[in-house]
């Protein structure tokens, strides 16, 4: 019973990820692609969680938090590049 539900959920999340990959490839502007990549990261978190339910293990719980943190840092870095042109400023003008 649980395995069937998990399998269906994995299929639905995979379909959603394919839709996001379409947006990454097709997306007319760069911010579209950045947002799509961020959402792919979050979908990856869901896929890892579902697979760790399917395999009946808790060895992957660190991976979930790790992907969340890395997706956040990556998205922030990309947005800062789009906004200011530099990722790491030498000195803040204030």
């Amino acid at each position: 019973m649980l395995n069937t539900v998990v399998l269906i959920a994995i299929l639905i999340i995979s379909a959603a990820t394919i839709g996001l990959i379409y947006r990454v490839i097709k997306g007319p502007t760069t911010p579209d692609r950045v947002v799509a990549l961020d959402a792919i990261g979050i979908n990856l978190v869901a896929i890892v969680a579902l697979i760790s339910i399917a395999l009946n293990t808790n060895a992957f719980v660190e991976v979930i938090l790790l992907i969340g943190i890395l997706a956040f840092i990556g998205t922030v870095a990309f947005s800062k590049y789009l906004e200011k042109g530099v990722i790491i400023e030498n000195e803040r003008d204030r």
């Binding site: 991976v63 840092i73 000195e91």
Partner: peptide
Amino acid sequence: TPGGGFVGGLLTSGAIVLLLLAFDMKT
């Protein structure tokens, strides 16, 4: 459990990179 010095070190430097992104090199 899974983990160790390598992943921990990369995650710590990830935290410092986030600090670099939000502030600047001098700070």
